[in-house]
């Protein structure tokens, strides 16, 4: 028993202690799916390390919101030089924390609607969309209005805006289309909502298990199924009113402002070596220049007729009131 315990303890110690550090180091906090084996992390790390002759250390948490909280929890003593993976719904709060430093350059990026923020730089973007199962739903809704007013038999799984980024995305989408009439729209949509899950994973899991023919996801979701699974079964519906945009950004922390590698990484991030990895590992659209053309599957995706987006300030100022409004209708 004692030897077993000893073996286990030493195994833990070995497993948990990293290699000794000698080279200059850049610490990047990001979300988990970025650093996963199949995510952009490993490719990006290798490419940047070859360029800078330094060590890149990724630290990942569950998602973008957890990422901001992690940095806020650590405060000014954070080890992060760069925080990569916030979206524009979080940048106002992130700036208000005082933990981020201006990047001081003109970001060479191309995102719908243009970009002019002095602190954060986009690295990819995507659109929220209603993804449907072509085997279950022959006539998908052609507009948000059709979704809202359609038959209650065609269920959709959505996410909770209190806990999930796509959930908040749908809330903002409905708000940007319906404005003051949003509560009425939600009241009409309510009978079609099968359930409201805490996060994207649960919702998409229910959808692929066949519990509902529709789910709130991204326009790029079908690209994964087409490229990785070779199936066109799951498609995104195109809505007349347009799709709501999500832009993912990175920023330099006050800690990183003292590390010259941080600015180098930001420049690298919008270049082809980073951007080429984005489409088929992060399943989003590249925000900077790429060397390789996108996989043809991306051409088949829904192209929004109109891009919808609230400014970070509008979101920060109204989020709570809008969530409460949603809650009042949906919890009746």
């Amino acid at each position: 028993m004692r030897t077993l315990l000893y073996a286990l303890v030493s195994a833990t110690v070995v497993a948990l202690s990293g290699p000794a550090l000698a080279k200059d180091k850049l610490t990047v906090y990001t979300y988990e799916s970025f650093t996963a084996d199949w995510g952009p992390g490993p490719v990006v790390k290798k490419a940047f390390e070859a360029e800078c002759g330094c060590d890149v250390e990724f630290v990942s948490v569950a998602d973008g919101v957890a990422l901001l909280n992690r940095v806020r929890l650590e405060g000014a003593s954070t080890k992060a030089d760069i925080v990569l993976g916030l979206d524009t719904n979080l940048t106002a709060d992130a700036k208000a924390s005082g933990l981020f430093a201006p990047h001081g350059t003109v970001a060479d990026v191309n995102v719908p609607g243009g970009w002019s923020d002095d602190t954060f730089v986009p690295f990819d973007y995507g659109y929220f969309a209603v993804v449907y199962d072509t085997e279950k739903l022959k006539n998908p809704p052609k507009s948000l209005k059709e979704l809202v007013e359609g038959s209650a038999d065609d269920k959709i799984v959505i996410q909770d805006p209190r806990t999930s980024t796509p959930g908040l995305g749908l809330l903002l989408w409905v708000k940007s289309v319906y404005g003051d009439k949003a509560p009425e729209a939600w009241a009409k949509l309510k009978p079609k909502v099968l359930t409201v899950t805490p996060g994207w994973s649960e919702a998409y899991g229910l959808f692929t298990k066949g519990e509902a023919p529709m789910v709130l996801s991204y326009t790029t979701s079908p690209a994964y199924h087409m490229i990785a699974e070779n199936t066109g079964r799951y498609q995104a519906a195109s809505f007349e009113e347009g799709e709501y945009l999500q832009i993912e950004v990175a920023g330099i922390t006050t800690t990183g402002a003292k590390n010259p590698l941080a600015a180098k990484f930001m420049a690298f991030m919008t270049g082809p070596k980073f951007q080429d990895a984005i489409p088929e590992t992060n399943w989003m659209f590249p925000a900077g220049k790429t060397d390789k053309p996108l996989n043809p599957a991306f051409d088949k995706l829904v192209k929004p007729t109109k891009t919808l987006l609230f400014s970070p300030q509008e979101v920060a100022a109204n989020r709570k009131a809008w969530v409460d409004e949603w809650l009042a209708v949906m919890s009746k």
């Binding site: 709060d93 209190r162 359930t195 409201v196 949906m330």
Partner: peptide, 27 residues
């Protein structure tokens, strides 16, 4: 997770969701 996923909507919400929300989006 059980309450939110199987509950069918935010009418089924526990205090735990409120705590989680307070520490997440609202910090």
């Amino acid at each position: 997770t059980i309450v939110l996923t199987l509950g069918g909507g935010p009418a089924a919400t526990t205090l735990e969701v409120g705590i989680y929300q307070a520490l997440r989006f609202d910090f």
